[in-house]
């Protein structure tokens, strides 16, 4: 269970200037690769308005989705089906007073529409997993604001059993400082620490429980960065929501360690909107443009 060994003793109250910066927890090669690719993509936009980065990735995603449709679907069959649907609709318009013809035409429209959906299923299934990964990566970067030097934040340790929070303490690396006594909330089995970020960087404050240290990465930066709000026990959802954050061991008394990064809104001219709304609008618009250029049947 021990994760990190610290050289400085902690008295359990206010700790400042812990002189040792812990190492980043290891991640799986696949997730490292994915995250690295996104980091690389966003590197040119690090210091710019995040809206620009979001426009760029939304454009790429919109175009990529069209390319997947273009090459992963049976475009010829889809075109043929659409033509047939159009023909049967025309049939309805031409012979509105012949009940038998109209009924048969409607039935065929329904049948071909269903068939059309079946043909679109294949590219949609191909897109599903990458899209979830993309959304998770974007959520990490655009839903929250990194801390700035001088900002205060709350680090929360949530425990599994009542009473275990009483002995918890905190160790802070240089660059972070505790600015209030720890706040115990027994009914929530939680201890909160108010911490001020003094300098830029990535830090690993450690929650100490029964001699064991459990770290949580904290990012202090004015640039665009991936932010992991919560470190918790392993679950299938973590794979998407926090792919770069190591899970807590199952046998620990800790349920989760959280950092309350502030929510980020994307400023687009006079509008202030959630990142995913902005993403969907731009991705959809660029997808439509790509559809016309690539002559994708959709």
């Amino acid at each position: 269970m021990p994760e990190l060994s610290y050289t400085t003793a902690n008295d359990g109250s206010i700790v400042e200037g812990y002189p040792h910066r812990a190492h980043a927890p290891q991640r799986s090669a696949f997730l490292t690769l994915i995250s690295g690719a996104f980091d690389l993509f966003f590197r040119p936009f690090r210091a710019a308005n995040p809206a620009y980065a979001l426009v760029a990735i939304s454009f790429v995603v919109g175009v990529a989705a069209m390319l997947v449709f273009r090459y992963a679907s049976n475009q010829r069959a889809m075109r043929r089906i659409k033509n047939r649907i159009h023909a049967h609709i025309l049939e309805v318009r031409l012979f509105p007073d012949q009940l038998g013809v109209v009924s048969r035409a409607y039935a065929r429209v329904v049948r071909y529409t269903f068939l059309y959906l079946v043909y679109t299923l294949q590219p949609l299934l191909i897109l599903l997993l990458p899209m979830l990964i993309v959304l998770a990566q974007l959520n990490l970067r655009f839903s929250r604001l990194p801390l700035r030097p001088g900002d205060s934040f709350i680090l929360k340790a949530k425990f599994t059993h009542p009473g275990t929070d009483a002995a918890a303490s905190l160790r802070l690396p240089l660059g972070l400082a505790l600015t209030a006594p720890p706040l115990h909330i027994p009914i929530l089995r939680e201890v909160d620490w108010r911490i001020r970020a003094n300098t830029e960087g990535s830090f690993w404050p450690a929650v100490m429980v029964a001699g064991n240290a459990f770290t949580k990465r904290v990012v202090v930066s004015s640039d665009l960065a991936a932010l992991y709000v919560k470190r918790e026990r392993r679950s299938w959802l973590n794979w998407f929501s926090a792919p770069g954050e190591r899970t807590l061991p199952a046998a620990t008394p800790l349920r989760a360690i959280e950092v309350n990064y502030a929510r980020r809104a994307i400023h687009a001219g006079p509008f202030e909107i959630e990142w995913w709304v902005f993403f969907l609008i731009v991705a959809f618009a660029s997808g439509l443009v790509a559809k016309v250029i690539l002559r994708v049947e959709l």
């Binding site: 709350i154 209030a180 006594p181 706040l183 115990h184 929530l188 108010r194 309350n260």
Partner: peptide, 20 residues
């Protein structure tokens, strides 16, 4: 949320959580 012994509290107000 008040700490049981120390003069410190957390205020949860909409999206904000503030320790004072």
């Amino acid at each position: 949320w008040l700490d049981p012994s120390k003069p410190v509290a957390r205020i949860d107000l909409q999206d904000h959580q503030v320790i004072l």
